[in-house]
Design a binder for these strands. Structure first.
Lengths: 147, 147
DNA sequence: ATGATTTAATTCACATGTTAAGTATTTTAC
DNA sequence: GTAAAATACTTAACATGTGAATTAAATCAT
C-alpha cells in the first residue's frame, strides 16, 4: 500500500545513508575519546607535524570556515592544537601539540582497523572503485557547473 | 611538497564531496523558495497527499527526529504542513496543506530538470549504477554491524 | 485490570552546517 | 606610494546534526 513517489534525489539519499553507515563505527570510536568525527578529521589532517592554514584545512576536511573557527577554538582549549606564526598575517596556521599527536597515535591503529574491516566486508577492489567513481562523479558535476 | 598522509577515510571524504557537488544546484533552487534542502525533502515525501508520521519521515528523509520536530514546527507556521489525527496518539502524523502542495507543484518540474541534467552529465546508466552500488554498500555495512 | 515495559515523540544542550556581513591584511593598479 | 580590489578569516544568526534525558501513550505480563 501507499508507496512514496519516485524520488528525484535517490542519489542524495543514497549518499546520506551510505555516509551514515560508513561513519557509524568511527563515530563510536572517536566519541570514546571525547571527539566528534569532524574534530577527528582535523586532527588527522595535522597528524605527523603538518602545519596547515584554515583554508587548506577547510578543503581537506570538507568543513566550512565558520565551523573551523569554532572547532579550532575548542581544540586549542583542549590543548590538542596550537597556533604557529604565519608569514601572511591574515592566515591562521595551526599544528598539533604533543598532546594532540599522542592522542592521534593512540587512536590511529584502531581507526585503521575499522577501515580495514569495511574494506574486507565490501571488498577491497569494490571499495576502491567506489571511491574512484565518487571522485569522478564529483569532478564531472563541478566541471558542468563551471560552464 | 608536504603531502598529507593517506586518509583512512577517503571514502567518507569522497561521500561528503559527492554530496556537496550533487546538492549544490538543488540547494540554490530551493533557497529561491525560502526552503532548505531538508525542508524540501520533507515536502517531497508528503507530496501527492501522503500522510506520514515522524518516524517514517525520519527514515525516508534521513533526518533525525529532533530535527524533524523543529522543522515541522517551522513548516506548520509557514502554512505548508498540517497535522492530522492519528489512531495512535503518540504519533504525529502530518500532510501537506493545499498551499504546501502548490509550492511543491511549482518547484517539482525544475527539480526534475536539474536531476535530469546530472544524469545527462554523468551518464544515465552510470548514475543508476552508482545509486545501486551505494545502496548495496550500505546494506553490506549494516548487516556487518548487526552481527 | 494493574504495574512494568516498550514505543513515539519531544526537549535539552551542545556541535556543526550555511549564508551574509564584517574585519584585518595583502595585493593590485595607477 | 596610495587608493581600490582581492584575500583570509571571523562573527553573527539561524537551521540542522547528535546523544541523552524526558514525557505521554500503547503494549505486555501476569
Amino acid at each position: 500500500m501507499a508507496e512514496a513517489p519516485l524520488y528525484d534525489d535517490s542519489l542524495t539519499i543514497a549518499l546520506l545513508r551510505a555516509r551514515d553507515a560508513v561513519t557509524a563505527p568511527f563515530r563510536e570510536h572517536v566519541a570514546e575519546a571525547g571527539l566528534t568525527l569532524q574534530q577527528w578529521r582535523v586532527i588527522r589532517a595535522l597528524a605527523g607535524g603538518f602545519e596547515l592554514d584554515t583554508t587548506t584545512l577547510s578543503r581537506r576536511c570538507v568543513i566550512l570556515p565558520p565551523s573551523l573557527t569554532r572547532m579550532l577554538r575548542f581544540l586549542s582549549e583542549q590543548g590538542l592544537v596550537e597556533q604557529v606564526p604565519a608569514s601572511d598575517r591574515r592566515q591562521r596556521v595551526v599544528r598539533l601539540t604533543d598532546q594532540g599527536q599522542q592522542l592521534f597515535d593512540r587512536m590511529w591503529v584502531t581507526s585503521q582497523e575499522k577501515y580495514a574491516a569495511i574494506e574486507a566486508a565490501f571488498g577491497t577492489d569494490e571499495t576502491r572503485q567506489l571511491v574512484e567513481t565518487l571522485n569522478r562523479f564529483r569532478a564531472c558535476l563541478e566541471s558542468q557547473d563551471h560552464a
